[in-house]
Nucleic acid binder design. Sequence first.
DNA 1: CAGAATCCTGGCCGATACTG
DNA 2: CAGTATCGGCCAGGATTCTG
Lengths: 111, 111
Amino acid sequence: MSGPSRQLLDRLSDKWVNLTLNALADGPRRYTDLAKSVTGVSQKMLTQTLRTLERDGLVSRRVTAAVPVRVDYDLTPLGWTLMPLMYAVKEWAEVHIGEVEAARAAYDAAL
Amino acid sequence: MSGPSRQLLDRLSDKWVNLTLNALADGPRRYTDLAKSVTGVSQKMLTQTLRTLERDGLVSRRVTAAVPVRVDYDLTPLGWTLMPLMYAVKEWAEVHIGEVEAARAAYDAAL
DNA sequence: CAGAATCCTGGCCGATACTG
DNA sequence: CAGTATCGGCCAGGATTCTG
């Protein structure tokens, strides 16, 4: 595998992409809400991740003129086709973390 | 989401994990074969990725005494439960790269 | 063949300050 | 509120060399 789709896979493997997409699974979220629900993300990385996802057509950005301004992010139809896969990976991690930790313990004990 | 399963998700989001797991989808592979089929990976990163996957119980490492030595990597039963998800993500990238590139062109044109 | 060990650097990313 | 801009440290990871 190489070429453009390989670069896209690299992007999907970014640390914050899965978390951001999953945070949008329940519908539109405001910027500050995302910052809170994506644990550990810095302002810079959240903005950078959202910009990239927007440019790639996975996320939409809607600005509501007001004081202060309001910005809502949402998954696009294309983004929705990816979300189940991201969710499945996240779920896999939660379901199998116990087995992984057991494997680590066994591996470390064998040193 | 936070805690141990979050760390595991971070590891699954590593750049080389998806590619390495997918390279093992068709059965056991030798180290050098993996180095060739995982395009762009350095020896250091391949070894590091394989070690981590082995420690996490996703990949097995079998050494055959010979001159020169032979090492085969394979998915464990646990690794096999994750593989379909990694494959689906890789497939998604290949199927939707066109739409993503179109979205990028549209985004850039709107500047 | 399958790594281990070392050195070194680009760029990722957090922290901080500022703004419409 | 939702960002942008800038600076600097730190380390991921490439290149190289060496070995069982």
